[in-house]
Design a protein around this nucleic acid. Structure first.
Lengths: 344, 344
DNA sequence: CACATGTGATGCAACGTTGCAATTCTAAAT
DNA sequence: ATTTAGAATTGCAACGTTGCATCACATGTG
């Protein structure tokens, strides 16, 4: 089939190709080969060529364990994966984004799933004391996230998906939640809504605070009523669905809703429609979109998109630069919300 | 807070705890400590206790690089993550399942995201030639999956999510697709359907074949018309949605539909309802459910559940046993579909 | 007392890599 | 021919672990 298959398959029998192999092949010493491979400038061009040639021919790849033992560099980045279901297919998108960014580098990705929310200080402690990765990516970051504190204290490379309120700066990439909320409010106001509601789970993330604050400010500016339905993080989808049904039956219900969670949006929509409300007519709804699910089901519904795949890529690039020693102040980026207004 | 926090945080300054540290502390030799820690029976009980005590006090954890270099054991299992979007939140569930199963063991999980479908022979080749993991989990397995062939040939520990048609047995865990199809057909027939349709993407997995075969057989047995809408794997959600709308407009449309993909189900439902069809009345629909999305949106809809979290756990347990040398014939399990009939 | 037997503990080499210190080589200067 | 500066290469130790071969010691046997 493919004409350029790698030949060093060495299913069995063939021994691993190490620096020694190259040394024997080229007649040079082991140290010279090592030095040459990582670009020793004191070497003759001729020998460097010879080494490179042999390395390529043999398909040499440095042994991870050897490098790690000697240098302490693991060439691993760790993703602490929050168990949250809010954002559909978050894990896949994030991981694909990371994978895309480390393709071609020497890094591997290890994923550490988290079960109990924000119990992950143990995870971080483990990584820190066992130096099990060169850097860490955390998500669902809280304003005074203890994990961040730990890694700052240990001066350990990490990047957070989400900002914090710590004085000491650190690398982060975050969704611009303030703009998200402001955009959503303005859109609803523009559609004639006078009494809107923000449905949000107090999940102790920084984004939660940012959204609420911005939401309130922008609603005040537009001169419309702005309620907040808090604490929905604890509700099961079924319970959230009931909330939707109650809202539908409520004569005093809002005429516009903003939701920052896909899962909650789905439950809410389920309840509202079940309760006889036609979305886009009696009630306007805007949600934060991170997967293709909702646009597929309700193409006419307004949404504001966060690209999790891109976020994974950006987080990884920031982290790698942090590992390479770049100053953290240069490693702080925000992702602009992408509004998708479907109708008028 | 927690009274039993680990004390060996060693943020900086403190040196790593190694066998040497314990040796110095106990006054024993390095070899003795090593031997003792992995249960040398020739040692005096007294010294063994002394070593264990010291190890615990210091919070000793064997260095992964050291072990790996010496023994070749990586203590890593690799998940090759298919990019497919069919099953919503598949990645998160699978990873959590694996994470749950390796908790407390020495294993770490590395995830290798796959972009181009079934181009993953390169991935496998890389793992094989660089011995970068002790075992591999693959998903979306095809009947003559080249990845399986490679790993069988190399006698490398792996487990596939999905069966194959290879003569040589290998470890697998699979959803019982035949039962899924049969259950679904019988349910539709029982609801009075006479002309049903299977919507399925020819995604070259083994499950595809199993489902179609079982579907046809069971429909014949029930004496009802059975069509198959193939090749839907290539369709985008938007296109799939159009298919739903066309079906809705078709006077000759089926009275029952079976779908094996959540994503396609969503698109289909979107199109059908947009086209004016009321599900559960004019058309019955049964889908394979792997996430909470659809039950939240349409609680009244029949579904048959595959527990991906449990699958991840089972795959891991099988793989670990395979790594430990258990005969593969004992490492083949099936997961029974769990029907959730909502109405009468 | 010399010797075998066993029990318990240890020294040493090796896995593959890197970085420093030390060495050889080349060619120019004396 | 001898010295010497610099260029080019190499030996050695170390990272933390394991397993084999060895060793020290006490006890029992002839």
């Amino acid at each position: 089939m493919s004409s350029k298959t790698t030949t060093n398959n060495m299913a069995s029998g063939t021994r691993r190709v190490t620096l020694k192999t190259i040394a024997e092949m080229t007649g040079l010493s082991l140290s010279t080969v090592s030095l040459s491979l990582r670009g020793g400038t004191t070497l003759k061009q001729e020998t460097r060529d010879k080494v490179n040639e042999a390395a390529k021919a043999l398909g040499y790849v440095p042994d991870r364990a050897g490098v790690r033992l000697r240098t302490g560099k693991t060439n691993v980045i760790a993703l602490v994966l929050d168990g949250s279901e809010d954002s559909i297919d978050f894990a896949r998108n994030m991981i694909q984004g990371i994978g895309h960014a480390i393709a071609g580098t020497r890094y591997h990705l290890t994923v550490i799933p988290e079960f109990e929310r924000h119990n992950s200080t143990e995870t971080i402690n483990y990584i820190l004391s066992n130096r099990t990765a060169d850097g860490v990516i955390i998500t669902h970051t809280g304003p005074r996230d203890p994990r961040v504190q730990m890694m700052i204290d240990a001066d350990f490379p990490f990047v957070s998906h989400g900002r914090t309120e710590f004085y000491t700066p650190h690398a982060y990439h975050d969704f611009h939640s303030e703009d998200f909320a402001a955009l959503a409010v303005r859109r609803l106001a523009g559609k004639g809504c006078r009494d809107i509601m923000l449905v949000i789970g107090d999940d102790s993330t920084t984004n939660y605070h940012n959204i609420v604050t911005s939401y309130r400010k922008e609603a005040a500016r537009a001169g419309i009523e702005a309620r907040v339905l808090e604490g929905t993080a604890k509700l099961s989808p079924a319970e959230m669905r009931s909330v939707g049904m109650e809202l539908a039956a409520d004569p005093n219900r809002p005429d516009g809703i903003i939701s920052d969670s896909e899962m909650r949006t789905i439950a809410l929509v389920g309840g509202l429609t079940e309760g006889g409300v036609t979305l886009g007519r009696e009630v306007q709804l805007i949600y934060k979109q991170t997967s293709g699910i909702l646009p597929t089901l309700f193409p006419q519904m307004d949404s504001i998109r966060e690209d999790v795949f891109a976020a994974g890529g950006e987080l990884t690039r920031l982290l790698l630069r942090r590992i390479d020693g770049d100053p953290v102040k240069q490693l702080q980026t925000l992702a602009e919300p992408q509004p998708h207004w479907r109708s008028g």
